Measured scan of single mutants.
Amino acid sequence: HNLTITQGKLFFHYNPKLCLSEIHKMEEVSGTKGRQERNDIALKTNGDQASCENELLKFSYIRTSFDKILLRWEPYWPPDFRDLLGFMLFYKEAPYQNVTEFDGQDACGSNSWTVVDIDPPLRSNDPKSQNHPGWLMRGLKPWTQYAIFVKTLVTFSDERRTYGAKSDIIYVQTDATNPSVPLDPISVSNSSSQIILKWKPPSDPNGNITHYLVFWERQAEDSELFELDYCLKGLKLPSRTWSPPFESEDSQKHNQSEYEDSAGECCSCPKTDSQILKELEESSFRKTFEDYLHNVVFVPRKTSSGTGAEDPRPSRKRRSLGDVGNVTVAVPTVAAFPNTSSTSVPTSPEEHRPFEKVVNKESLVISGLRHFTGYRIELQACNQDTPEERCSVAAYVSARTMPEAKADDIVGPVTHEIFENNVVHLMWQEPKEPNGLIVLYEVSYRRYGDEELHLCVSRKHFALERGCRLRGLSPGNYSVRIRATSLAGNGSWTEPTYFYVTDYLDVPSNIA
């Protein structure tokens, strides 16, 4: 807008934040220059609390790290170098490059900038070799853009010569660093050979998330399962459950009422301010606690030095998902009996873990797994792929695949051998790939016309006998059925096997 004052003059007093240069501009645009008398524009009460600059400061050096910015700028000295009290560095987070010096300023003089007072450097006698002032900004957020400017702080001049310097606002972004852990990993099994893994992005990506790394490792069953005799009275049979499938998407929606109208769909109840505040506090606490764990609990591995020492970490090797089922080394339970199943799973520490690289999504279907087997899954978020990966501390989750139908069934015939004193040795093959492992066998036998009897055969007993022995049988026709019990439950009964026990007292003698 054009402003013209045809008559009258300007009068400025007691404006401590208004620089004289701005008042002189007002004289020019209003056409009143030359009308004012000496005392109409006070030299001592206008701009006496402001830094009124008329020179431009330029930054000469900028260096960044993930949490620091090192700045240096060209030296500046007023005509009387004693008038320079120091520099004021202003900075704040700036997602967009549209910041002005006066953003967030209120009537009390406060604003949204963080201000650092910096002492002037030592003055050199040689004007050509003056030290460049600077400042190291610490405690910054990774991968965050900051708006920065600097200006001088000078003393009051009796001659009211307006001098000083100020830089333009520059924008500097800190470097990326390792992201925080992925949030809320959930693993479920939808079949006997697959596990579905879902997660949420890290709360602090500290860069642009480029991919996720998912490692999985087959877990050995508890050692007590191999040692305890679950045929003993009072000892509860062990059981394991597989990871249940995901709930429906509708039930997972946030901010939804727990109660549904019987007449149909209901609208979600909005969260109160107290609920939102509580969630923010919980989120802040979780982030602080995660940072504490990362800094205190997890110790970084030592990389190899120039002395030739090897990095103890196993090298990563990509495998196809079809090879995942046989990740671990199978060892027989008892070496003397080769027909026992290889369900003991000690994992070799030198073995390469299978892994998958996930790009542009937060889910993965891990296939080719062994049925009813526990897996430990390790999830890392990465925001750099080359020249070397920059990934987060791992988040861990466990899951067990679903049982395989008929995996616990005894394959092959049940054979028998009759000894003296009416002892019958029953023999059968253990299931080759049971659900988890076989903890015991149930032997059901009966003599024709009598009630059915049951015998429990422990895992250890089966390994020693290759089956079991029935003792003290009365003469007669017998039928026997056997079924295995694994961590997933009972298998199917075998087809009945028949044998006849004679009275050993009636056996004919070869003595003449």
Rank of each mutant, 00 (worst) to 15 (best):
E310N: 14
H461Q: 07
S492T: 06
I209L: 14
S203P: 05
A263K: 03
S367P: 12
Y292Q: 09
Y498W: 08
K271L: 10
E433F: 13
E350Q: 04
S344N: 08
L235T: 06
R400F: 08
Y396A: 09
T272H: 13
H416P: 09
G264F: 05
G491H: 02
V414H: 01
Y441P: 00
A484L: 06
G306A: 09
E310K: 01
M427E: 15
P205E: 11
S344L: 07
H454D: 12
E442Y: 15
L487Y: 11
I366M: 13
P496R: 05
S305K: 14
K233I: 05
V358Q: 11
P270Y: 06
H371M: 02
V501M: 11
A399Y: 09
R240E: 15
A484P: 05
V297R: 09
S203Y: 15
L277T: 03
F372S: 12
H425P: 01
L455V: 08
K361H: 09
E442H: 04
E351K: 06
T497G: 08
H371P: 13
S223A: 08
P205S: 11
H211E: 15
A484H: 02
S344H: 13
R471S: 05
V414N: 01
T497R: 10
D291S: 09
K317R: 12
P205V: 00
R481C: 02
G368M: 14
T288G: 11
D408H: 01
V324F: 03
V324S: 09
L321I: 03
E217C: 08
N326L: 10
D408L: 04
S248H: 02
E279R: 14
K278S: 13
H416K: 06
Y448R: 10
L426R: 00
L369R: 02
L237W: 13
T272M: 07
E452H: 08
L437N: 03
Y292P: 06
S398T: 15
N490M: 07
P244L: 08
E350S: 15
L487W: 05
S486E: 00
T494R: 02
R319P: 08
L232I: 12
Q219T: 02
E217P: 13
F499V: 13
D408P: 00
Y445V: 10
E249C: 06
E217V: 02
S268T: 13
S243D: 07
V443T: 02
T303G: 07
S268P: 10
Q380G: 12
S257Y: 08
F215S: 05
G234N: 06
F355P: 04
E217D: 09
S203A: 13
G368A: 01
Q275A: 12
R376V: 06
F226N: 08
S268Y: 03
Y230K: 11
K317A: 06
T340L: 08
L225W: 12
S444V: 10
T343S: 05
A488M: 06
A488F: 04
E281W: 02
K236T: 12
L470I: 15
D506N: 01
H416A: 08
T373D: 03
T307H: 05
A405L: 12
R483Q: 12
K357N: 14
E452R: 09
K357P: 09
F462D: 02
E247F: 11
D229G: 07
S341N: 14
Q380H: 13
D250W: 08
W242H: 14
G306I: 11
D229E: 05
L455Q: 07
E249L: 12
P403A: 13
L228N: 09
F462L: 05
C267K: 07
Y396R: 08
K278P: 08
P270G: 02
K406D: 13
G412L: 10
T303S: 07
E404V: 05
F298Q: 13
T303L: 03
L379C: 09
N208S: 08
E465D: 04
K233S: 08
K233V: 13
Y445I: 02
T288E: 08
V299W: 02
N360C: 05
E221Q: 03
E258T: 12
D311L: 10
S341W: 10
T373L: 04
R318F: 13
P475E: 06
K236V: 07
P205W: 06
S243I: 12
V296I: 04
K302D: 14
V414Y: 01
T343R: 09
R319A: 05
V397D: 13
N477M: 14
E227M: 07
F285E: 05
H211R: 11
S257Q: 12
G325C: 14
F285Q: 05
W216V: 09
G449S: 10
K302F: 14
S444F: 15
S203K: 09
S262H: 10
D222S: 11
S486Q: 00
V507Y: 03
V443W: 01
Y500K: 08
S367K: 14
K302L: 12
E221R: 14
E224A: 10
G467P: 01
E495H: 06
T401A: 06
T241L: 06
C382R: 00
V443D: 01
R459V: 13
Y478W: 08
P300C: 03
I438F: 03
S458I: 03
P434A: 08
V457A: 04
V359Y: 08
C391V: 01
L369V: 10
R301G: 01
S239M: 05
S509W: 13
A335F: 14
I418T: 14
H454M: 05
S248P: 12
P300E: 14
R469L: 09
D323S: 07
T241P: 10
I366S: 01
R390A: 14
R353L: 11
S251D: 12
P300G: 10
A381L: 01
K406V: 12
L235K: 11
T343M: 09
G234V: 13
E265L: 09
R301C: 04
V214E: 00
D311H: 06
A335M: 13
E260T: 11
K302P: 07
K361V: 04
T343L: 10
T333Q: 06
P434I: 08
T307I: 04
F419W: 15
E388I: 01
H294V: 11
C231V: 01
W216M: 13
N360V: 12
S479Q: 11
T497F: 01
V359D: 01
C266I: 13
E265P: 08
A309Y: 11
Q256F: 10
Q252H: 09
N339C: 13
P354T: 11
A309V: 10
D506E: 03
S320G: 15
D229N: 10
G374E: 11
E249I: 11
V345Y: 12
L280S: 03
S284A: 15
L364G: 08
F372M: 04
